[in-house]
């Protein structure tokens, strides 16, 4: 019984310790972000490895999600004789929810894990300690560029995902199922708002999700137990935690934005 209580206490202390360390880490990363103005090349390189390399999976999944939305939306709408609203359904659901959320989940899997593994192995092979030895701050040199790059890349990927998805829905609805071309676009254009849907959905959600994913990814890497097992456990935690964080935050953001 006492063992159980002691275990419970230890677990919760560990939890709060990690929570606190994570936030202190975030503050230290944010403090070293302004120094990047003098080294933009570091950020560009990371945008390449997080953003550009995630492009193919984002484009392909966006096209398929849009096409599935086109098919499913058509099946539902046609029973009400409202298949002209297909464009509206596809665009709104992609802009507000599916675009930012699905691309964030893919981004966590594609780029977040790579960040954690890379930083974790740098720690395991003692490259980070070597840097400190040479009076190079690893936070400024390694962590901050990756953090900023993910925040830049994520909203752009969400926008690309959404745009490709709308085109996929157009291809399925108009090309395959014979919805009227004009009303597909006009219904969409009449009801989709720039601030409410495009900026709130893709841009703000994209930036927030990007920040959360990259924070979790770099923290897990930096905080990993410096062994092969430790790095693999940290990579798993990155995917689990950032997916949960994205879905939970999405609920909060949706509640704040659209009610």
């Amino acid at each position: 019984m006492t063992d159980l209580l002691a275990g419970l206490g230890r677990r919760s202390l560990d939890f709060f310790e990690r929570l606190g360390r994570g936030h202190l880490f975030l503050l230290r990363v944010l403090a070293s972000v302004p120094g990047l103005v003098r080294r933009p090349g570091l950020v560009v390189k990371q945008v390449w490895s997080t953003g550009v390399q995630s492009l193919i999976i984002i484009v392909i999944s966006g096209a398929f999600v849009g096409m599935v939305l086109g098919l499913q939306g058509y099946n539902t709408l046609v029973t009400f004789g409202a298949e002209e609203s297909l464009g509206l359904v596809v665009a709104k659901s992609l802009l507000r929810e599916l675009g930012p959320v699905v691309s964030a989940l893919l981004f966590a899997g594609r780029a977040g894990t790579a960040l954690t593994a890379e930083i974790g192995f740098m720690k395991a092979t003692e490259q980070l300690s070597a840097m400190e030895m040479m009076a190079v701050d690893p936070l400024r040199r390694i962590v901050a560029p990756r953090f900023v790059a993910a925040i830049i890349a994520m909203p752009l990927l969400a926008a690309i995902f959404t745009a490709v998805g709308v085109l996929g829905g157009y291809f399925c609805g108009v090309g395959l199922l014979g919805v009227d071309d004009g009303s597909f676009w006009s219904q969409m254009q009449a009801k989709v708002l720039l601030m409410e849907d495009v900026v709130n959905g893709v841009v703000i959600k994209g930036v927030v999700f990007g920040a959360v994913i990259s924070w979790i990814a770099v923290f897990e890497g930096y905080d990993a137990v410096p062994t092969s097992e430790g790095v693999s456990a940290a990579t798993t935690r990155t995917v689990v935690h950032s997916s949960l964080a994205v879905l939970g935050l999405d609920f909060v953001l949706t509640g704040l934005m659209f009610n």
Binding site: T162, A163, M188
Partner: peptide, 12 residues
């Protein structure tokens, strides 16, 4: 370009 397309073509 994707953002611009969403603003112009989708939100009109």
């Amino acid at each position: 370009a994707a953002l611009l397309m969403l603003a112009m073509k989708v939100a009109n």
